[in-house]
Design a protein around this nucleic acid. Sequence first.
DNA 1: TTGAAAGCGCTAACAT
DNA 2: ATGTTAGCGCTTTCAA
Lengths: 328, 328
Amino acid sequence: MSMDEVAKKAGVSTATVSRVMNGSRSVKASTRARVEAIISQEGYTANRLARNLRTAESRLLITMVPDFSNPFYAEIVKGIDAVARRHGYHLLLCDTGASLTEERTYFDMLRTHLADGAICLDPVSTQRELASENSLLQWVACCEFDPKGSVPYVGIDNAKAARDAVKYLVERGRRRIAFINSDERFLYARQRKVGYMTALSEAGLTPYDGAIVKTDGLTFDDGRRVAKRLLASAIKPDAIFAVSDTLAIGAMQAVHELGLRVPQDVAVIGFDNIPLATMVQPALTTIAQPMFRLGENAANLLLERMRDPSTPALGTLLDHELVIRNSA
Amino acid sequence: MSMDEVAKKAGVSTATVSRVMNGSRSVKASTRARVEAIISQEGYTANRLARNLRTAESRLLITMVPDFSNPFYAEIVKGIDAVARRHGYHLLLCDTGASLTEERTYFDMLRTHLADGAICLDPVSTQRELASENSLLQWVACCEFDPKGSVPYVGIDNAKAARDAVKYLVERGRRRIAFINSDERFLYARQRKVGYMTALSEAGLTPYDGAIVKTDGLTFDDGRRVAKRLLASAIKPDAIFAVSDTLAIGAMQAVHELGLRVPQDVAVIGFDNIPLATMVQPALTTIAQPMFRLGENAANLLLERMRDPSTPALGTLLDHELVIRNSA
DNA sequence: TTGAAAGCGCTAACAT
DNA sequence: ATGTTAGCGCTTTCAA
């Protein structure tokens, strides 16, 4: 059923029906009542495709996530969703698999007006590729960002956070501190490595031979695998710092499987403070990111820029926190 | 830039540009080349709002999830996404919080042609409310479904699966088997309870006093909390069957905190086989659901019904599997 | 093989 | 306070 038919039944013009639907003040009470009666009686809802075409907005926001089976992103998305909803927007959530091609597809949805704005959580390396070709589109970066780029962002100071974690290990007397990093296409991976190096050099240390390892993914099993390698080499670590909790938990598992104890033999620190961190044995010491608030901030930033595109494209860094539990 | 401008630049009509964009065969090769040159040179992409309005389809599929921080749903969504993508659809993912009001919002998006179809993972109790008012819309249920309803669905036989789990415990000599259930608005909760009762009665047992407990949520902490209650009562369980892995892992944690051993003192079985199940100590025995395939099937079912609405609205049950590890 | 023209269902400027 | 009308940018029949 279209607006035309509603108008006909109510004996008014489509313009009046439109006014009623959009809450325009300039409709006589009796007319409004008559129209509303028809609307609810017929269960009429406006065709949003038509409305969107006409008003050139869709009230849809895209959120690009590299992998939504990673629990870390869930909280961020909830923060985004909360803000979006509060402003009458809905979320088009996309698992890009960190792939450039997929990203392009979603940017196309912006370009073709299927969505009004986007929040990108994908690796900064892909973001850089996309920045120039999508400079006219409304989008912001969250967690992953190019500090020198022109895309507004919200994140944390990864280098400082990693430094805090490693500094803590040093203060507890650890000297052979291994570092499990992930894909360095991600800014956080590169920055956290910097923080790791900084903390060591501030303590007059250097990474021992073979202290730094890399994984492709972020699964528990990735963590377990590389930790086993770490624990099987000539020089054995007395502490492991992993760039994500999932990796850290995998590493703890590996330590246990080799008959060693956490933290006595090997201390372990993770990053993210996912819900699970409190549930493993021993509970995981980690760096907490304000995930929900990261999402909220990103959404607010985007909405603000959409409202007023001349808003300066600034970057915001939120605070992290070292959460000390029992694994280190 | 609109199609009009492309047409003007190429010296053809919009109809021809449209034909080129949609790969119509009836365009002279030289004309096509000329138009395509302009398109790529200008970086033109069609306004999908306009196209959607005209063709009355959006190529968007809604997926309603009660809570996407639950890792269980992530795999299902990936299955849905894979199929959707293969057929040129994109996913509008929604966290409804299992709320009826939210659900209604998303069904409205179907009604208003913002999306072409929906897959609902929300509790069957809310689905029932929605079934009649949305009987004309294209949607299917996944995991949660009304076996007697008219909405097509894909799921597993929860009662049978739960029975398998509890039967296994009985066969291993357990007698005081506790049951941690969650919100009984969910079909799976009710069906699994049936399975639990069936297995016991088949073994000539009845639940001991206080054997059955309920939680509101599905977090680790919910599991830990109720397990503590269970282990503090007069009669202590020698086994715990939880309706989800997250609850089971929380329960294991509680057992450990009380200085008891899993499985020697208390065996624990979960449900879902989330990735984490292999990473906890001891590794969790659980019922595996084919999550990815559940998602794939649901999406295929939906697409089929959209293609041919006369396709019978049938229900499919996929197989589960008891995965034996070390916790029971 | 191509173009002209109608129209998808709505909003908003303008007129009354 | 209400109606008329012109489009938003596309697809698609119909005619040439």
